[in-house]
């Protein structure tokens, strides 16, 4: 009985030892978002280089295994991407990043919190630099 489709080793590892966990000083993009359903919270920091590509990224906050693992894997995946590429990322991309296709819609919201945070942060960044 003690096996799980969702809670594979990789997912648990990323949740227990999240990559890019922390803060960045003077970020270009900074945004905090909450999932009202479960209270998960993510604060995301992105620093861009002179070509408007992701130079550094960090996140912090409290959440479930899925939202933490997702943020960890997602932030790994977006390093070096341009702002334009970031803007085009879809929910499907973020879920692929996590490698979990069997999530129910409610759990998908946990997994997608990091993407949602990034999107809103980018919008704020665009308005600021306009």
């Amino acid at each position: 009985m003690n096996t799980s489709d969702i809670y594979r080793e990789e997912i648990i590892d990323h949740s227990k030892h999240p990559r890019n966990f922390g803060k960045i000083a003077k970020p270009d993009v900074r945004y905090k978002e909450k999932n009202p359903l479960c209270g998960d919270e993510i604060e995301l920091f992105v620093k861009l280089d002179s070509h408007k590509k992701v130079k550094a990224v960090a996140f912090n906050g409290a959440g479930c295994v899925i939202s933490r693992a997702s943020a960890s894997l997602f932030t790994e995946a977006i390093k070096g991407k341009s702002v334009r590429e970031l803007e085009q990322l879809s929910a499907k991309d973020a879920l692929e990043c996590l490698g979990l296709s069997e999530l129910t819609p409610t759990r998908q919201k946990c997994a997608l919190l990091v993407l949602e945070t990034l999107k809103r942060g980018l919008k704020k960044y665009q308005q600021k630099t306009k």
Binding site: S4, Y7, G63, C64, V65, I66, T104, R107
Partner: peptide, 14 residues
Amino acid sequence: EIHPHDIASIFDEE
């Protein structure tokens, strides 16, 4: 410290 959502997902698998 397990998040309730994770508990519910594991229970769902059962």
